[in-house]
């Protein structure tokens, strides 16, 4: 897994071997604002799946600091109950730079977990920034977890978070405001164009293990929908996006390495810093160098 995360040269052969060796385990993405109870929900879902004899993979994504490159991956704290079960494989993943292609790495880790033998893979990420969109891309079913406390936030919810949801979870639904939140989600959904799948709203109290069965049923219902004819277009679209990302990343990386772009970038940054060149100009010059080279090597 580290090989894949680090983009090591051996990684691709490894993935190639794993891909298709077993039927891919379904992937459930779990996202929502900080403090919504995602980790606890994931732990409870995993426990429920374990009681039904399933092997469970978990990918827990936490943000990398853009300043230091470091990260604290703390999702295991809420998953203590799973932490000695050999049939549960939890892997924490830092988002690292955006250049790394988070969606691709998430997908790859999920595939490795599938190869390990997971029957279902849960992918958790905090819904701030871009990571939730990447996770939705990597997941078959995406749960968006909200709480009555985020009731106000729904007004300002980024459009993205509403659109990626296949299932809405109102967690902490024993708190005041749960009804209003559910109503707010329902009315937001009503404004959307009619789609073959309408996201259900499930109420849970994860800390008391309430609503987990219902949540599991909703996930299963969505899975059944995905297997049906109405969902084929969407799945094809996801695969297309995945291929596009893979190509973009490889092209970029190849160009980056061939040109020793790192060193050029340092020099350009110095020039911009010194005020001799504008950042726009510097970026354009660098792009020209890459494409020029590409043209010449063709001849």
């Amino acid at each position: 897994m580290s090989l894949v995360e680090n983009g090591a040269p051996e990684a691709e052969a490894l993935l190639e071997r794993v891909y298709g060796a077993r039927p891919a385990a379904p992937r459930v993405g779990v996202t929502g604002p900080p403090g919504a109870g995602k980790s606890t929900l994931v732990a409870e879902l995993a426990l429920l799946l374990r009681r039904r004899g399933k092997r469970v993979g978990v990918v827990a994504v936490d943000p990398t600091s853009p300043y230091t490159g470091g990260a604290i991956l703390g999702d295991r704290v809420r998953m203590s109950e799973l932490s000695t079960d050999p049939e549960v494989f939890i892997r924490s993943m830092a988002t690292r730079g955006s250049l790394g292609g988070l969606a691709a790495r998430t997908e790859e880790l999920a595939e490795l977990l599938s190869g390990w033998g997971s029957d279902i893979t849960l992918i958790e990420t905090v819904g701030v920034g871009q990571s939730e969109l990447d996770v939705a891309q990597a997941a078959d079913t995406t749960l968006v977890v909200l709480t009555p406390e985020s009731g106000d936030a729904i007004q300002s919810l980024k459009a993205g978070l509403m659109e990626i949801a296949d299932v809405f979870v109102v967690n902490k639904s024993d708190h005041a405001g749960a009804d209003q939140l559910a109503a707010a989600i329902r009315s937001a959904l009503a404004l959307r164009p009619k789609a073959p799948w309408m996201p259900p709203i499930v109420r849970t109290v994860a800390t008391e293990r309430r609503g987990i069965e219902e949540l599991h049923e909703a996930i299963e219902a969505h899975r059944a929908h995905l297997a049906g004819p109405k969902a084929q277009g969407g799945r094809r679209e996801k695969i297309r996006a995945r291929l596009k990302n893979a190509i973009r990343e490889r092209l970029l990386e190849a160009a980056w390495e061939r040109q020793g772009l790192g060193a050029l970038l340092d020099r350009a940054a110095d020039q911009v810093l010194g005020g001799t060149v504008s950042p726009y100009r510097a970026a354009r010059d660098l792009i020209e160098r890459i494409t020029d080279h590409g043209e010449r090597s063709k001849n």
Binding site: T68, G70, A71, S80
Partner: peptide, 10 residues
């Protein structure tokens, strides 16, 4: 974390 490590905190 500030030193650039990825820290898994349990």
């Amino acid at each position: 974390r500030d030193a650039g490590f990825e820290v898994i905190y349990t």
